[in-house]
Amino acid sequence: MTTWNIFTSKQKMAVELAFDALSTMDGITDRRDTFKGGIQRIGFSDLYSFVTSSDSMMDEKLERALEQDGRLRGELDRLLERTAVYRFPKLAAASSGKADHRGGEGVLIRLKQSRAEQTQTYVIIELAPDFPEAPKILFLRSAPDRYIKHPLPEAHDGVIQVLAEEDSDLVRALRKVDTEVSLH
């Protein structure tokens, strides 16, 4: 039987490193409550699902995490940038401080008050025939930690139309000139 004192220095180092690796494995794969890391995190998969799936809406957990975690906001911004079908350029400040349309290459967003119901507004997205693909989601970022996601209906003849209340988050954010807008 091999004893500790006849181990070579290399073997002793191997014992030490194997002990380190096995102990680390035990630690990081331990699922018992007492060894929990404590922080329940939002994963990148959650962000991806939020950005790309029409069904996945902002919930309380994500909202709170975005409020508290600057890195998470940065990741979401990067992901929005990376996966956007189109990102609208920033608007120049209008004298009124309000915007009623945003134009880009092959796409235009207009806000139009409903004639039938004055408290409601149409958000109309017009796509040029050569616009690469019909967007499914409209994303707005009206403040550093304020994200608005709005699933879009199908386009008809290159036009997508959404009816919203004038004082809804969607319309108010679109009217703000410094809101960042992207289509996904």
Binding site: G37, R41, G43
Partner: peptide, 16 residues
Amino acid sequence: GKSGELISVFRLVEET
């Protein structure tokens, strides 16, 4: 000897 950060990252991967 237990890194909360590393454990939480692994849990995140496992629970994805």
